[in-house]
């Protein structure tokens, strides 16, 4: 039997002028799994996210998202419709909260479309329709749930911009979860976290996968996070997929090691230099 993957990326290519940021990339991300995309700096990881979430229009490729709500071709949807209809949520490498709104407001804004319908596109809301008040209470309850999950409930009424860095990272994840996504894309969620916070993040992401039953796509440099929680890892280098598999296979893949640690030195050196080097007595 064939299981349709949650996300199927096929032949994704993104060119900026002459620069090929992503070159014919294909991979699948399964539902209820954590798929990590790793690679050295500049490998094109964030570009993949920007294509998935509609910030870039891919040059070539098909991005298919399939879940209970239907099948969506992400490359054809506008950015805000990807979040609204295809239910893809994302966080950003450089945190993008609404700094002068409170943590709670950040999470309520994330439920905009649902509340917009409940407020009769503002008209009923202006008239004080009880249906809107109910919807707003539900929205606050969902926000409270995620604030508690991320340990921010006591700081709910503080401006998001005044929270410490680690809390802002967690709040951004909470905000993404408040959109009730089918696929959650996290762009370096552990960047700048201390080891204890990273460990908490691991627990949170595993719990999200188990309880919310959604797929998570993760870009991360912190290998303790990646290796600890990923079900499946895709390795990029210069926009190409160089490995794809379970954490164990990827960790031992020589191509991956080479991409991260560079080529072995002596392969790069010209032969006459190697000859010279051999002439040098050991220990010098």
């Amino acid at each position: 039997m064939t299981v349709v993957p949650l996300l199927s990326v096929q032949h994704l290519t993104m060119r900026f002028g002459g620069l090929v940021a992503i070159d014919d990339l294909s991979f699948d991300a399964a539902d209820r799994e954590i798929t990590a995309i790793i690679g050295p700096n500049g490998a094109g990881k964030t570009t993949v996210f920007n294509c998935l979430t509609g910030f870039y229009q891919p040059t070539v490729g098909r991005l298919t998202l399939t879940h209970g709500g239907g099948t969506f071709l992400l490359e054809r949807l506008e950015g805000h419709r990807i979040a609204k209809e295809a239910r893809v949520a994302r966080t950003f490498q450089n945190i993008r909260l609404f700094p002068r709104m409170t943590a709670l407001e950040n999470l309520v804004v994330a439920q905009h479309n649902r509340l917009m319908r409940a407020s009769g596109y503002t008209v009923l809301g202006l008239l004080g329709h009880p249906g809107y008040r109910r919807a707003e209470r539900e929205a606050v309850e969902l926000a409270r749930h995620w604030l508690e999950r991320t340990g921010l409930a006591d700081r709910a009424d503080r401006d998001a911009g005044s929270l410490p860095y680690g809390a802002q990272r967690r709040l951004e994840i909470a905000r993404a979860m408040c959109t009730r996504p089918a696929l959650l894309c996290l762009d370096e969620p552990a960047a700048g976290l201390n080891p204890r916070e990273s460990a908490e993040l691991n627990d949170l992401l595993l719990a999200v996968r188990e309880e919310e039953r959604i797929g998570i796509l993760l870009i991360e440099h912190d290998m303790s996070v990646v290796m600890g929680i990923s079900d499946h890892i895709v390795v990029l280098d210069y926009g190409k997929r160089i490995a794809d598999g379970s954490p164990r296979t990827v960790r031992n893949d020589p191509t991956v090691i080479r991409a991260y640690l560079g080529e072995e030195d002596d392969e790069e050196l010209p032969p006459e230099v190697l000859v010279d080097l051999r002439g040098v007595p050991p220990g010098c």
Binding site: T53, G54, F55, G79, H80, R81, I82, A83, K84, A89, R90, F92, R96, L97, F98, P99, R100, M101, E105, N106, V108, V109, A110, H112, N113, L115, M116, S119, T122, G125, L126, Y132, R175, A176, T179
Partner: peptide, 29 residues
């Protein structure tokens, strides 16, 4: 005062704070 408490008003303020984040949350800028 009323519309600030409605989703449109909150979306206005969110848009002032960060338009890209708004788009990622499904708000039509």
């Amino acid at each position: 005062r009323r519309i600030r408490r409605l989703p449109v008003g909150r979306a206005w303020e969110a848009l002032r704070e960060d338009e890209i984040a708004c788009r990622a949350l499904g708000i039509n800028p």
